[in-house]
Every structure is written in C-alpha cells, then in structure tokens.
Amino acid sequence: MRTAILSDIHGNDVAFEAVVQDMNHQNINNIIFLGDLVAKGPQPKEVFERMMALKPLVWLKGNTDAWLDDAMIDILPTTKKEILLLAYYDYMAHRLEGSEMDALIAQKKMSHLHIEHYDILCVHGSPLGMDDGMDPLEKPEKLERQLKYSEEGVVLFGHTHKQISHRYHVHRLINPGAVGVCNHKNDTRAAYAIMDTNTGFNVELRQVAYDLDLVYKIASERSFPNMEDYRNLLTVNEG
C-alpha cells in the first residue's frame, strides 16, 4: 500500500494541483490529509473541491480550519495579529458555500487507523491539540509529554511546515511538510510524503516546484488581503 500524506494546503490550489500531478505518477493507493485546507490562501473553494474529488482516507481539521467553528466575524480585533486573522477569515468565509463550511467543521481532529501491519495515529499538531506543534529533533521532554498516551507505532502530524521522518523509541514520526506555504529553511516548494507499506515500512519525503508568480497573480486579481504577510507565508520559514 502506497499512501500519500498531505498537510497544510492553506488555500493554495496552484501548489495543491502540482502535488496531485506528482502523485499521479507515484502509484498512490490512499491519501491522508492532516488539516489546514482553506485558510490564509486565495483559493479556498478550489482546494476544497479538489480535496473532495480525491476522497481521502483520512481528512482532519487543522487549527485554521477550526476558525470556522466560531463566528469570528463577531470578534472586534484589537491587535495587528487579530486584524490579519480576521481579514483571512472574512475572505475565506465569503468564498465558501454554507455546505462546504459545514463539511470542514464536521471533520475530525484526530484519526486512528490500521494499514497493513501498522497502527497509525493521525493528528494536525500533536496528540494534545491541533495547535500544539511537535518537533522530534528538538525538546525531547516536550515530545515525551506529547506522546505519553499514544500507543500507535506510526504518528502522522503537520502544523509546523517542517518535513520529518524520524524514529523516536517505539514511534515512527512523520511530518509531510506543507503543500501550500513555505517549508523549513525557506524551501518554497510544495512538500508531501509517501508511506509505502508494501514491503516493510518506507517513507519518501517529496518536494514539488510550482509557480509562485501565478499564486501572487491570482491573489492580486482577487484582492486577497494581507499581501505582504501572505508573501512571507509563501517564502519565509527560517525555523
């Protein structure tokens, strides 16, 4: 079984399309999506429709998808960050149908599944929460706390936009990286992973180039808010 693992598309359908085209040449059997689909990008409806067409085995809610759980439109922003987030929310909410927003709200925050001989836990941030970032290469005491109650041998997670395949005690920890925003060390390519359980357990971390200028053009034509902030999301990730 060859399973594509995707996360953090963030309303960037140009990047999402490039990844899907790459997957079409990889003999993929299943797709797992770990959340953050529509927010902070100029193409929320397009990425939703593309994800629906793919019929993923797992489709999780990410922390930015969870903005739809509450009516942020009623929030009176008081900080620069809140003003940015409200503008992103307003753009997204006015471009999705009510049924599409309902579908996003209904997605799970966590999923347990069994593929071949492997028990797998899927989360967006960590087993402790959607916005709780995991980094197996840093702060082992934090990682120990995050995995304390997780018995699955494989843990799939996103949120940090940092591609990782790492063994930690009994766990294999896999972060596919981000499809739609900049990845670790300012890598602007769209990232995803392939988990191959046909013979043993193998993970391939893939990166796919896409047309950033086209994303900027679409964003500009649609009067996407926070353009300076959005350019940074697409090009800067020094962590």
Rank of each mutant, 00 (worst) to 15 (best):
L113A: 04
S220Q: 14
A178W: 04
V58L: 02
A193S: 15
L156E: 02
V203A: 00
G153Y: 03
T188M: 10
S111P: 00
I83D: 00
I115T: 10
A66I: 08
E100H: 10
S223Q: 15
P77T: 03
V170N: 09
L6G: 06
V236E: 10
H94V: 10
S126D: 07
Q163M: 12
A87G: 00
K61I: 10
V47I: 06
L205G: 11
A87E: 12
M227T: 04
M110A: 14
D229K: 03
Y149I: 12
E228G: 14
D131A: 14
Y210I: 08
V19S: 04
K142D: 15
N27L: 13
L121T: 13
C122F: 07
E151A: 14
V123L: 07
T197E: 12
L234R: 03
G133S: 13
K108A: 15
S150W: 02
K148P: 05
G125Y: 03
M1P: 04
Y216I: 13
D65E: 07
T160I: 10
V181T: 15
D119C: 03
E100P: 01
I9Y: 01
K81C: 00
V19L: 04
V154P: 03
P140T: 09
V208F: 00
S220N: 11
R231M: 14
F16Q: 01
H184F: 13
Q207L: 06
N226S: 05
D70K: 12
I73L: 06
E141I: 15
T188E: 03
H166V: 08
L104V: 15
R206C: 15
V208P: 02
L212W: 02
A53M: 09
P136N: 07
F157R: 04
C122I: 12
N175I: 12
L147G: 10
A66L: 10
M130W: 00
D229W: 01
A106E: 11
Q163F: 07
M52H: 00
K109H: 14
K61S: 12
L147A: 11
K185D: 09
P56H: 07
Y210A: 05
C122V: 11
M72W: 15
D132R: 02
G158C: 11
Y168Q: 05
Q26Y: 07
T3D: 04
I194R: 03
Y118L: 10
D90G: 01
D36S: 07
K162L: 10
Y216H: 09
R231E: 14
G239V: 15
S223P: 01
E238M: 13
A209R: 13
V236A: 09
D8Y: 04
D213Q: 14
A66E: 15
I5N: 01
K217N: 05
F33C: 12
F201T: 10
A53T: 11
D119Q: 10
A15E: 04
V123T: 14
G62V: 04
V155T: 09
L86Q: 08
K108Q: 14
L173I: 14
A103K: 00
